[in-house]
Amino acid sequence: MVKVEFLGPIAKENIEINVKNLKELKEVLSKDDEIKKWLENSAVAVNDKLTTTLDVELKDGDRVAILPPVCGG
């Protein structure tokens, strides 16, 4: 199982899901309209390392963080 964390203003509880890679995870998450709107603008980190590609294989115990853009002052 892969743990998915939704950070910042994304109003979703963390989930655990059985997926093989980030591409498959995106397909699953895109089925939720609230999450889907964040996916295009958010950064993604796997085990605390940012990635820019969906070609990342995931294994049991990995942690994926969805990091939405934020503004601050």
Rank of each mutant, 00 (worst) to 15 (best):
E13H: 11
S42R: 10
A11P: 10
D48T: 03
K20G: 14
L22K: 07
T52N: 14
L54C: 08
R63D: 01
V4C: 05
V44L: 13
E34H: 04
E24F: 05
V70Y: 02
V64C: 04
L22C: 11
K20N: 15
L50E: 03
E24Y: 08
D48F: 11
E13W: 01
L29W: 05
E34C: 02
N21C: 10
K59V: 10
A11Q: 14
K36A: 08
P69H: 02
L50C: 02
N47L: 07
E13R: 15
K20I: 10
I10V: 14
E34G: 04
N41W: 11
G8A: 15
D62K: 06
A11V: 09
V56K: 14
G73K: 06
L25H: 05
K12G: 00
E27Q: 13
E57S: 14
D60W: 05
D62I: 06
V70Q: 03
L39G: 10
W38D: 03
G61Y: 10
E24T: 08
G72M: 02
E34A: 02
L7T: 08
V56G: 01
A11L: 11
V28I: 14
K59C: 01
K59Y: 08
P69Q: 05
E13K: 15
D32R: 03
E13Y: 03
V19K: 07
V64I: 14
E40C: 03
L29I: 06
G8D: 09
E24S: 12
E27D: 14
L39R: 07
D60H: 12
L7C: 08
E40V: 11
T53H: 08
E24N: 08
I35S: 03
E13M: 09
V28S: 05
N21R: 07
N21Q: 08
V46W: 03
L39E: 08
K12N: 08
L67G: 01
N41T: 13
D62A: 07
I35R: 04
K23W: 10
E57H: 09
K3G: 04
S42Y: 09
K36L: 04
C71A: 15
E5P: 01
N41D: 13
V28L: 12
R63S: 09
E24R: 12
A45G: 06
T51R: 01
L54A: 12
K31S: 10
I17W: 12
T51M: 00
T52M: 04
M1F: 07
